[in-house]
Design a binder for these strands. Sequence first.
RNA 1: GCCAGGGUGGGGUAGACGGUUAUCCUAAGGGACUGUGGAUCCCUCGACCCGGGUUCGAAUCUCGGCCCUGGCCCCA
Length: 410
Amino acid sequence: MLQRPRGTRDFLPDEMERRRLIEQRMLEAARRWGYREVCTPDFEHLELFTMKSGEGIIQEMYTFEDKGGRQMTLRPEVTAAVLRMYVNEGKVLPKPIRWCYVADCFRYERPQKGRYRQFWQFGIELIGADTASADAEVIMLADEVLNSSGVTFDLHVGHLAPMKHLLTDLSPEGQRAIMACLDKRDQGALEAALDELDHGHLSDPLAALSGCRTIEEIFEIAGDVPERARIEDTFALLDAQGIDYLPDFGIARGLDYYTGMVFEGFAQNLGAENQIIGGGAYRLAHLFGGDDVASCGFAIGFDRVMVSIGDFPLDSGTIVGVVCTPEARERALEAARAFRGAGFRTEVDLMQRGMGAQIAHAAKTADFAVVLGRREVDAGTVTLRNLETGEQREINLDDAIAEVARHGDR
RNA sequence: GCCAGGGUGGGGUAGACGGUUAUCCUAAGGGACUGUGGAUCCCUCGACCCGGGUUCGAAUCUCGGCCCUGGCCCCA
């Protein structure tokens, strides 16, 4: 038998309904902040992602050559594509631009809990606003979107400036190496790397940076960095709005293109892969031929959110099963159409089963049975049976619809 | 790429010092039952992940692969 590809999943209807419900809540939260949904291609030129993240990531991407000999790839993330889209078509739009998306991404990695080769991200990008208010809005929206999903999480918010200030004497490669150690919270590797770069004296301040939990301490350690006012303003806005977060200036995100504010969120029940959101302020558009516009955004690991919140009961709405004898089939289809027209999920027997078997089936899958036979056809009525209580009445179609509607309202 | 534990009908399982027709539950389809319930009874359907090796004989032992679960690495 054919297997599905490694690291991919099939979703049965119950799971799809849960996923769509959570997705809709996230989109709705974003919509209320003015973020409108966009969509970019599932595949892009390979170059788009190597420009952003370097050649090293190719081995973890689904790359292929198309029939025209172009090097293409299934998108491994969405931000680069959205910024390409901005450069292609968004430059003339009034700033700031607020966009959001839900998109599947592909990475060739070893699957484990909460990590798949095809996975979905919910994200937003705020383009063209370079202020503390913009940074704060993105964090507040992240908080609201995650809360709307019902996931419980810890939010860590930081800024790269203090760390970069401490590392200012180091070469870009050196900075990158140190930030990688900090991102991993690997004290041993950090000290080794610092010694190798002849900056052992930075070990204590860097450790203190990761450890401190108020912004006053930050500037005691890192000095009066130019971004101080911006950082203080951002955090003051978050505090004023009652956002529950942890200042964390040890976040390095290991990335070259983040320029200022950075944040991460972590959920429970997730094992080793417990980060469910990452984001921050960045500059990318100039890489794709646009202006050097400031942007800020985040991406949520949608599948991880779903794993973390677990299964929950679904309200499938009121379901109607139409049961009929052969001579009443046409009338049954009419009745079904009327119930569907009233908005009810309505299923008609297709198996040519006997009346008893049809009702037995309806009892398993529906809330009401609408029974139609010779008697109802002659009388122009339907028999409506409540499959919970077993009560049934022979009434006209409109009354039956009204009664089912009352059940749905309760 | 590395490590650990796994893989028996659609789901859940028994069988394991190698030995009859591979167990049971459940689901699904049919029937008892051509106008009324999830019960009951009967029937049907349907599995040893793939390949090599050892053997008279492999679900069982062995090797390799694939896949699953979790961890490492990575995490744009």
